[in-house]
Design a protein around this nucleic acid. Structure first.
Length: 479
RNA sequence: GGCCUUAUCGUCUAACGGUUAGGACAUCGGCUUUUCAAGCCGGUAAUCCGGGUUCGAUUCCCGGUAGGGUCACCA
């Protein structure tokens, strides 16, 4: 388990193209990537497309787009090649056949003569008897010579309990029940995951295998295969599961796990997604919760990976995203916000106002649709009763508004900013002694909304002329 | 059912065997304030149960309970 200082770290992310990737897949990719980056190693993207029936068109592009979105870049992969090309399992069949032949020669593999229905019957019987299904209980006595059209099975010669070390969980073991004559090559000529990934990892020089803990129980199968081929075991890094929001079930596509790119569509930041994903199953052991991707790589350490599952908490994601929005340089923030705004609302000065009120950029869409921002570019319409602050007499409100217009008129056009406006309104408030009676009607006259940003900044954004014009409209309404 | 694995506030988590069990999100309250948002301050809230080992267990061991995984010609 000790890291050999001279050995270059090689990790990989190996999705199967069966549709979109979700946060669980991405977290695995993220850790493998971060570990490689931190150790100046190599991160490989490999496509495990050996199940032709489940393959979904466009998946590979979708996976790559998901990774690219959050900046998880690979050093070798199907699109860019590398020293161990090809990076799609469907194009590596020769390798699997080569090793299959070695196994046959060594007596570690044999053809499976049963039909799928027959095997299914064995399984059903075992299930009814509440026994684990083991093919080796039905191992044929004189299997036919393998000709490529029958499934090829691994032959477990030494049925024993296996033990191994895991960099996260430490010492692990499994009973002999976990060992079976699993299929190496299917009837259709494609290898199974169990076989293919072992060969690929060997040929690609993968040093650390990171994957979800659902693979713990099949690890003895891999181990027996390593032994048969006399391959040195790679390091195992079992990642804890990500549970759904209820904290009970493992998060999976069937339980509503979202397409990872949905988060992009909803307006989350890549850096926030990395931060959030990183913290499901790992933390730096300090009280720091907001990390940039660079900080994450720097701090990432296998020793701090958790062993128990964590649940996906959207509230926390939202909070993290908000914190990352705060970290955004002005220009980037503006770019993001403008993406969600119609032309007429692409006003520089409203960017911070909006940013302060959202967790994710998608919320801007709602604000726009509800017309909550319209007053920034067009005169609001509102019920005149709303101008009245609490039970203040109409005459007082009117008098104050007239006073405000009077004072605003005296401010130089170029000096008409939020500070000047605030000072001016403060003076008037001080004279009347009732702040609300002055500020509320002004704010309402400008925004037309019960809830809005303060009147100072609105005045600045609207400018002197428009501000006074709106205040005059309000005066007219009340008269 | 077999095998494997996990267990600290509602959630994510911290705590060389010795802490008033810490932090964050959420929630509640207060301050600030014309409203909203933000900000600041504070509150509620946890070691699954039972045995051991120990002067002393959240921590180590055993058992129970509860959760998760796995038992494919899927990965």
């Amino acid at each position: 388990m000790e890291n050999n200082q001279t050995q270059k770290i090689v990790t990989r992310f190996a999705p199967s193209p069966t549709g979109f990737v979700h946060v669980g897949n991405l977290r695995t990719a993220l850790y493998a990537w971060a570990y490689a980056r931190k150790n100046k190693g190599t991160f490989i993207l490999r496509i495990e497309d050996t199940d032709k029936a489940r393959e979904v068109e466009g998946s590979i592009e979708h996976v790559m787009e998901s990774l690219k979105w959050i900046g998880v870049n690979w050093d070798e992969g199907p699109d860019i090649g590398g020293p161990n090309t090809p990076y799609k399992q469907s194009e590596r069949l020769d390798s699997y056949i080569k090793y299959a032949k070695i196994l046959i020669e060594k007596g570690f593999a044999y053809a499976d003569p049963y039909t799928e229905e027959e095997v299914e019957a064995f399984r059903k019987k075992a299930d009814e008897e509440k026994r684990p299904f083991l093919y080796r209980d039905h191992r044929p006595e004189n299997p036919p010579v393998w000709n490529g059209s029958l499934p090829l099975r691994f032959k477990v010669k030494d049925i024993k309990s296996y033990e191994w070390n895991d960099l996260v969980r430490g010492h692990l073991k499994a009973g002999a029940e976990a060992l079976d004559d699993f299929i190496l090559i299917k009837g259709d000529g494609y290898p199974t995951y169990n076989f293919a990934h072992v060969i690929d990892d060997l040929e690609m020089g993968v040093t650390h295998i990171m994957r979800g803990d659902e693979f713990i129980s099949s690890t003895p199968k891999f181990l027996s295969l390593y032994d048969a081929l006399e391959i040195k075991r790679p390091e195992f890094v079992m990642l804890p599961p990500i549970m759904g929001p209820d904290g009970k079930k493992k998060l999976g596509k069937r339980d509503g796990a979202k397409d990872f790119l949905e988060y992009k569509k909803e307006g989350y930041l890549p850096s926030a997604m990395i931060n959030f994903l990183a913290f499901i199953g790992w933390n730096p052991g300090t009280e720091k919760e907001i990390l940039t991707p660079e900080e994450f790589i720097e701090l990432f350490d296998l020793k701090q990976i958790h062993i128990s599952g964590g649940s996906f908490n959207e509230d926390k994601l939202n909070w993290i995203n908000k914190e990352h929005i705060k970290l955004l340089p002005e220009n980037d923030l503006e770019k993001y916000v403008f993406e969600w705004l119609p032309k007429e609302l692409q006003i520089k000065k409203i960017v911070p106002i909006i940013a302060e009120r959202i967790y994710k950029f998608g919320e801007i869409k709602d604000m726009v649709e509800k017309g909550e921002l319209d007053f920034f570019y067009k005169e609001p319409s509102y019920d005149k009763e709303k101008l009245i602050y609490k039970d203040t007499a109409k005459e007082i409100i009117l008098k104050n508004l007239i006073n405000v217009v009077d004072q605003f008129s005296k401010i130089e056009e170029l000096k008409f900013d939020k500070n000047e406006v605030r000072t001016c309104l403060d003076v008037i408030s001080l004279e009347t002694g009732k702040k609300g009676e002055v500020l509320h009607p002004v704010r309402l006259a400008l925004s037309g909304l019960e809830k809005s940003p303060d009147p100072f900044i609105i005045s600045e954004i609207l400018g002197k002329e428009e501000t006074i014009s709106r205040l005059n409209k309000a005066i007219l309404l009340l008269s």
